[in-house]
């Protein structure tokens, strides 16, 4: 099912623009990642797409239905795991899934059967009867993820689903999201974690200062910057180039072409020098932060 955001903008009652011009489209069987720094407008965008917020400008379509004009139809097609959601301390994982699935129209029996499948997928089966008060923050977060994935909603929104999770829990969530995408769901998640966007995303939308800065597959985004390599220099005594990023005792120099990188590295005097291919993080810094442009 498709999700379309066209020139989405939101001005809050206090006069602050949460988003100014967000454009992208997402399709089924694909994980679309909204990537951007804190305050970029990711959560506001998700709010508008999930009918929590009314757009000030632009429009959003879920499966062709307008979030403004067909609110109830849209709500039947989506599920949302909000940022910093805290499931009730009295709910066990089992309670949470059973209740949520009943809300989504499943019978008590069907919700138990479906709940079991997703509790196992999110590695919550062993603790299914333990109330959330006795569970860790990561386990509680996984309950919320399990709730929305278990729903039959064809479009699932997850606002920073892996924030605060340890490495193991993060991989469990990632694996479950990939499985659901394979099953045909349209998954849209927000993050500011480059690694998460690169590993998980089929399509990445970079958002900065409330606007869509760039979008494409992680590979396409990496090629949007005019550099292919970076030289990371530790404790430099001499750098024969003015344009570099100064990180204190480390400097980063972006160059185009491996040969040029090697040539330049030979002229640098430093404790250690490394040459790496540019990655999504570099593209992000260049496109969203403007770091490589010398703007920051």
């Amino acid at each position: 099912m498709s999700v379309v955001a066209e020139h989405l903008a939101k001005k809050y009652p206090n006069g602050v623009w949460g988003a100014k011009d967000v454009n992208f489209s997402a399709n089924k069987s694909r994980i679309t990642v909204l990537l951007g720094p804190n305050g970029a407008g990711k959560t506001t965008t998700v709010g508008m797409l999930t009918t929590l917020l009314k757009p000030t400008k632009g429009r959003a379509l879920i499966g062709g239905y307008s979030t403004m004009d067909d609110v109830w139809k849209v709500r039947s097609l989506i599920a949302l795991c909000p940022q910093d959601v805290r499931v009730d301390i009295n709910w066990s994982p089992w309670d949470a899934l059973k209740g949520y699935l009943m809300i989504r129209g499943f019978s008590s029996e069907d919700s138990m059967e479906r709940g079991e499948k997703y509790l196992k997928l999110l590695d919550l089966w062993e603790i299914r009867k333990t109330p959330a008060i006795a569970l860790s923050g990561g386990q509680r977060k996984r309950i919320a993820v399990a709730m929305v994935l278990a729903s039959d909603a064809p479009v699932v929104f997850l606002d920073e689903p892996s924030s605060g999770l340890d490495v193991e829990a993060r991989y469990i969530v990632w694996k479950s999201l990939r499985k659901e995408a394979e099953r045909g769901k349209t998954i849209i998640l927000t993050t500011h974690d480059m690694k998460e966007a690169e590993i998980l995303g089929d399509y990445v939308v970079m958002i900065g200062k409330g606007k869509t800065i760039a979008q494409g597959t992680p590979e396409e985004l990496k090629h949007m910057i005019p550099y292919t390599h970076k030289i990371v220099v530790k404790n430099a005594r001499r750098i024969p180039i003015k344009e570099h990023i100064d990180l204190g005792d480390r400097k980063v120099i972006y160059v185009r072409g491996k040969e040029k990188a090697v040539e330049l590295a030979e002229k640098i005097e430093a404790a250690s020098i490394g040459i790496e291919e540019t990655n999504l993080e570099d593209a992000y810094l260049y496109l969203v932060g403007g770091v490589a442009n010398g703007e920051n």
């Binding site: 989506i78 949302l80 909000p82 805290r86 009730d88 809300i103």
Partner: peptide, 21 residues
């Protein structure tokens, strides 16, 4: 009130549940 603070209400809004339910 607690549902609102803990964002559970946001989860419910993004479902076919109506305020009356």
């Amino acid at each position: 009130g607690w549902d609102k603070q803990q964002k559970i209400m946001d989860m419910f809004i993004a479902t076919p549940v109506r305020p009356f339910h």
